[in-house]
């Protein structure tokens, strides 16, 4: 049931996976290096960012901090899922944690009312996760294999920022979110020249600090 429920939204995953595969190829990583990272980290946006930083030989601290800041949103999903998995086995808990993605969580959350037991909810969630994982890996492999053959004139590197636009716009729920995004955009331009690619990290921290001010001021 979960597998079928997530099918309508996977069309957005295929180009994103292809961009990821293409980025692996652009970074001159071997197929097995790409698959190692893709299967073990399994976090598209963070992978794109960290691969880009690694190609520029950024400091390990910068690479990891950037990737983990991007993945911080999984904390929220993890917290929201914890009541549903509290009576599951350690293996099921591990699988739920490892396969946590925006799409799987959102699909599970949207169907939450349909579950009469936690077990039913977990089964549904694992179905969405299986569909997501298969689609993601297939599209990354396709991107790796075929992306390398694309001529430079196709500007495939620009597919990364474009795919981030697709991730960003749905999160801009109101003016406060837009204000944080604009703040981040301006700071990223001002701080771009910082050494060790620290501009990204500093921008992210300042923007999260700005968001914290907005959250604190709200009554």
């Amino acid at each position: 049931m979960g597998f079928r429920a997530v099918l309508p939204i996977i069309s957005g995953i295929i180009p994103f996976g292809a961009v990821m595969g293409s980025a692996f190829g652009e970074a001159k990583l071997s197929f097995w290096q790409a698959m190692l990272m893709n299967t073990s980290v399994y976090a598209g946006a963070a992978q794109l960012a960290t691969v880009e930083l690694m190609t520029q030989n950024a400091a390990v601290f910068v690479v990891i901090a950037t990737g983990l800041i991007i993945n911080l949103r999984f904390l929220l999903y993890s917290a929201a899922m914890s009541p549903m998995v509290h009576d599951s086995s350690p293996l099921i808990k591990f699988l739920c944690a490892f396969s946590l993605t925006d799409q799987s969580y959102a699909t599970m959350s949207a169907n939450h009312d349909k579950f009469s037991t936690n077990k039913e909810g977990v089964s549904f969630y694992l179905g969405t996760a299986a569909c997501m994982m298969m689609t993601w890996h297939a599209s990354v492999i396709a991107g790796y294999v075929f992306g390398n053959f694309a001529p430079a004139s196709w500007s495939l590197d620009y597919a990364v920022p474009l795919s981030f636009v697709a991730l960003l716009i749905p999160t801009l729920k109101n003016k406060k979110y837009v204000a944080v995004a604009v703040f981040s955009a301006i700071m990223s331009l001002l701080l771009y020249q910082l050494p060790l690619r620290m501009g990204l990290m500093v921008t992210a921290l300042l923007a999260i600090g700005f968001a914290w001010l907005i959250v604190r001021r709200k009554k």
């Binding site: 911080l72 999160t171 406060k176 995004a181 955009a185 921008t203 923007a207 968001a211 907005i214």
Partner: peptide
């Protein structure tokens, strides 16, 4: 986790993604 912390997490994409998009466009 507090409601405010929960809400703060929802701002993370808006705080980070423009920092990738904008420099890749302007620079």
């Amino acid at each position: 986790i507090s409601d405010k912390t929960r809400e703060l997490f929802t701002y993370i994409p808006a705080a980070i993604l423009p920092a990738f998009i904008v420099p890749a466009t302007f620079f």
